[in-house]
């Protein structure tokens, strides 16, 4: 079981949280402009790296707020937690491929 540091409530047990998958995958600015391939990338494809991963968690049995974490998917060590209005720590984890392609 992981000890997860909620940015609002402090460290709590993992069962208090729910997982939200990869962070920073933005809804396409103009969905109608996307090709079927690009739409498929947005809808069905997420990065799945071994190592640092920027991901979303929600403290569902606590303050019910969403936040982001950088966690190592090999060791499960949480390196950073940050609020949604804070930027991803520089160099902590790669940006999502989908957003890179849109940029």
């Amino acid at each position: 079981m992981m000890l997860i540091e909620c940015p609002y409530c402090g460290p709590r047990n993992e069962p208090e949280f729910a997982y939200g998958g990869q962070a920073h995958v933005a809804y396409p600015e103009d969905p109608n402009a996307l090709s079927d391939e690009e739409w498929a990338q947005y809808l069905f494809y997420r990065d799945n790296p071994q190592g640092a991963y920027a991901e979303r968690w929600v403290h569902s049995a606590g303050c019910r707020k969403w936040f982001n974490a950088i966690r190592n998917t090999r060791t499960y060590e949480i390196q950073h937690v940050y609020r949604l209005d804070q930027a991803r720590p520089d160099g902590a984890a790669p940006a999502p491929t989908t957003s890179r392609q849109e940029a």
Partner: peptide
Amino acid sequence: DTYNGYGQRGSFH
């Protein structure tokens, strides 16, 4: 386990 992981282990709960 709901999170992504390559660790060949999961959480006890």
